[in-house]
Design a protein around this nucleic acid. Sequence first.
DNA 1: CCATTCTATGCCAGAACTGACATGCCGGTC
DNA 2: GACCGGCATGTCAGTTCTGGCATAGAATGG
Lengths: 105, 105
Amino acid sequence: MDEGRRRELEAAGWRAGDAADFLGLTPEEAAFVEVRLALARHLRELRQKNGWTQTAVAERLGSSQSRVAKMEASDASVSLDLMVRSLLTLGATCAEVGQTIAQAA
Amino acid sequence: MDEGRRRELEAAGWRAGDAADFLGLTPEEAAFVEVRLALARHLRELRQKNGWTQTAVAERLGSSQSRVAKMEASDASVSLDLMVRSLLTLGATCAEVGQTIAQAA
DNA sequence: CCATTCTATGCCAGAACTGACATGCCGGTC
DNA sequence: GACCGGCATGTCAGTTCTGGCATAGAATGG
């Protein structure tokens, strides 16, 4: 957000910031959320790059389409565990996963 | 393991290999295990480097000493979630966590 | 507009994880 | 030996996660 716009909003009684600020997350909580988001994005990219449907991915993972959708949405009901395992199963390398996390925040 | 020793063992009816081979894990399962082990090691190093006891760490994480021990042992009852959250809470950065995972295998 | 395909969201029973507690093991101190 | 601090291992009730199902929305082709 550019500085001018922020001041404008603050003058109107708003506080500028990201979701973490808004939700009052601690820095490590915020980092964790960022990690989850990064992995979710990576998961979707990997799927789309290969032209797979969520259903196809679900089959490959031994899961269901709805869970794949939730993974890509970084839904609260999916764990890091599931996301990382899924990435590896879909062919991502540890290096790839690691880099995704490293760049999360 | 050196080649000669391996042949010697195989001649005696043994099969050489790592834990993954032995347990019949798929490559991605093996990678996942490696990731867990790497994080567990990192967790212990981080604790020891700072001269903390498991109890102290547990307090800081809002958990218990036994769970910290299990984390460091990469016990089956602890999730990647918990390990990553713990690392971040103890002050590790995303970059650090990412690198640990990237170098896991 | 309708049908089809793909994706998103709600829900639930069963499985997995978590913190807590109890207990055992080991090395150091007295 | 007795005691103690630090770590490991077992167990368990409560919570969270997971796969599966139903269904609704979005996008595309007829």
